[in-house]
Design a protein around this nucleic acid. Structure first.
Lengths: 186, 186
DNA sequence: TAAGGCATGTAAGACGTTACATGATTAC
DNA sequence: GTAATCATGTAACGTCTTACATGCCTTA
């Protein structure tokens, strides 16, 4: 029974959706994807693909295109099965909670002088607003009929990012109110 | 200029808040913390503490308690500075977006047969509801005056987790409606 | 012709995971 | 007395990061 890390699953899923495609293509996807951060370094992706192939989850064939050799990847039936199992259910324990770098940092905002605490809130809000604008663009792009059929799964992933981002903005406002009331700013 | 990974910052922050404390204490905190997942294995924590000490961010002294030797850790001034810098601002690029395992998986829910897609939504909702209940307990505990002064920063971290969790539940409902409408369930 | 993107990889070192290993103390 | 918890670590292994290395193709 093959189990996948999130990184492996993201790579295998990318291959599955765009097969046949190159490892380089997967790297580019990872690098430009705005709603998830996976390691796109050559030193992680190429060895990982080799491992996935050794495990029989990916199949590759090398082709000569002009003077250039290109290795095309496909997801095998076994790979598809592993991907389905990774998607779940059942879920592991870690699926329940999001990782929010701002939440982690909030615990230690008290270490900043009160004036910088306000700046922290301002900057965080600005980051989230920019993120929101980016997600709006993405949403428009994903819904654009000119780009081919809109992918409902991708759209839902974007909705998730948007809603979580909104919740974080609400949270920042709450934090500002509460901290001000408690005299912990300025 | 010392930079910290999130794991290092979480450990250093824990030491700072509870100093003097042991590496074992930090491990236990990591293991039982419901709103963040950091590696609590001995193989990561003890070597990390040693590294932090070598970098001058943590100071330790070994004491004999009965027959037992215990190493107590403190955060140094340099450690505090590094922690403050990690908290930001300015923020790195990765601070903007949350990592949501359900979002990552949603992209590939289409691989499941329609009947299992509905089960996926059900199970996900159940996980988030359980999470919500746990967060409620935490919130009550953090606000309980009997536990000592309520820590506003910890409370805000809990609020963040709660609000994000609510947003994810809303998202699941949206997903269910939309997928049903598009005939992608059943 | 130079810059940047496409395309593939390797090597050294840092880090995390898993398992092992030891021993003291506390609660049942 | 025995199981769980406190407490500290190490060793082997696998993986990720960073940097290096190569070469083709397209566009300005």
């Amino acid at each position: 029974m093959e189990t996948l890390t999130d990184l492996e699953a993201a790579a295998l899923g990318c291959v599955h959706r765009h097969q046949p495609c190159t490892a380089h293509f997967v790297r580019t996807r990872f690098r430009t994807s705005p709603s998830a951060r996976f390691s796109d370094s050559a030193g992680s992706v190429y060895p990982m693909m080799k491992r996935l192939e050794q495990r029989g989850l990916v199949a590759s064939r090398e082709r000569q295109e002009g003077r250039r050799r290109v290795r095309y990847l496909k997801c095998t039936a076994k790979g598809r099965t592993a991907l389905g199992r990774w998607v779940g259910p059942p879920f592991g324990r870690d699926v329940g909670l999001t990782i929010d770098p701002l939440r982690t940092r909030m615990l230690y905002v008290e270490l900043l002088e009160p004036a910088r605490r306000a700046a922290w809130l301002d900057e965080a809000e600005q980051v989230l607003r920019q993120q929101d604008a980016q997600l709006d663009l993405l949403r428009a792009e994903a819904a654009d009929p000119e780009q081919g059929d809109p992918d409902p799964w991708l759209q839902l992933a974007h909705e998730n990012a948007r809603l979580e981002n909104q919740a974080r903005l609400d949270w920042l406002r709450l934090a500002r109110r509460r901290l001000r009331r408690q005299g912990l700013l300025d």
